[in-house]
Design a protein around this nucleic acid. Structure first.
Lengths: 215, 215
DNA sequence: CAATGTGAACGGGTTCACAGCC
DNA sequence: GGCTGTGAACCCGTTCACATTG
């Protein structure tokens, strides 16, 4: 059966990995993948793969595996990768510029169509093909260019204000690299990538083993 | 009681947020924080704060709250933020350079002491204060400079090889920005920051509401 | 036989709600 | 009265194991 009810978040987060795994999959003589093989490619275990795929209503064939082409299609469909979601990068410092480059470069349906920065020297210029505007123009930009996703790479002080501006302009998807907790209405999806926090988590584990060694 | 058994991963991941929240906390007349206030600062709910802090064996005082200075001390202690963990950045492309800058800039106990890159033009130069070496020297670098953490910002093809080299050199903490699944022994802690995957997750939700609207 | 699909058991983390203490 | 500390309930996700099917 193809229940196709709500797909659990944890599953959604793995679908991109499966998709990537399938792309790396040698399209050999036989065009089928087993859950075991896919598990390897995605770095998870086979049970998880099967349960995840069952949420898509996808059918493999017992004793054989999944048709890799069809599976790729199914996952693409579920994720909606055919859509193009224009991105605006807010804050074109070192990190912002690198992000704009990276995101635009890997041509995955997330074109960076504009950027903002408060530096008067940057406003009006085009950096790596991306036009830089004043922060005040964010609303305009979003509307004119149909921006769907906002990336926040401003200094921490400016992050909440930028988020507010994005939300006010109707953006409901935000990816933030600022080391701050952002508040926004519930309907806004915020994914926060916090480098310092990540490092501190790594540091915690190093600290633990150091303590263990000293005992 | 101060059980101080194993601290749950989910709690560890939030401790940095509490620490940051405390730093932002106005050291007012009274030097106490309630779980409610801290919850706001960290963007979580109060019950979580209390349970998390209970794992540290920390004591607040009922009816009052937590002594903010002591709490800061306790969390710092638990995370081991007093330690300094030298970092090597592998791959000094746009992203790597920005990361090296960022991590080094926010002076948090993670000095970027070296970098590697396969580009012959970069090897031997010093970028933003960070000396760039050939990938083959990774082992040396790690030993000479006591590197504890490796950041992988190479192209995807080179990521696994770089991880292997880091592991071979004895590095047990890796932060990867490469869009690949890395394999490593269990004792190696890998934190993967996958920008494209993050964007695709955002895209999924945008896709969902678009579908919902069209129905 | 081989590999899927899935109910059932399990486990970690979150939330609730309230007893305990200032 | 206010706020902490914490058992209990709850929820989500993972894992297991096996019946099911090409």
């Amino acid at each position: 059966m193809a229940p196709l009810g709500r797909i659990p978040e944890a599953t959604v987060a793995r679908l991109p990995l499966y998709l990537r795994g399938l792309d790396a999959f040698p399209v050999g003589v036989t065009a089928t993948v087993s859950s075991d093989e896919l598990a390897d490619l995605a770095g998870v275990n086979a049970a998880k793969v099967r349960k995840d795929l069952s949420h898509l209503g996808t059918y493999g064939t017992r004793g054989v595996g999944y048709d890799s082409a069809f599976l790729r299609f199914q996952i693409s469909q579920a994720l909606g990768v055919a859509n193009v979601w224009p991105v605006v990068v807010c804050g074109m410092g070192n990190l912002g510029r690198a992000l704009a480059n990276h995101i635009g470069f890997t041509d995955c349906g997330f074109p960076v169509v504009a950027a903002t920065d408060s530096d008067l020297d940057k406003i009006g210029t085009v950096v790596d093909g991306v036009p830089v505007h004043a922060p005040g123009e964010l609303g305009d930009i979003v509307h004119r260019l149909n921006v769907a996703i906002g990336v926040i790479s401003t200094p921490p002080e400016a992050a909440q204000g930028t988020a507010d501006a994005l939300v006010a302009a109707g953006v409901t998807s935000i990816m933030s690299f600022a080391p701050t907790v952002l508040s926004a209405p519930d309907e806004v999806e915020i994914r926060s990538v916090d480098l310092v926090t990540e490092l501190q988590i790594l540091g915690f584990h190093l600290h633990r083993v150091r303590i263990a060694e000293d005992s």
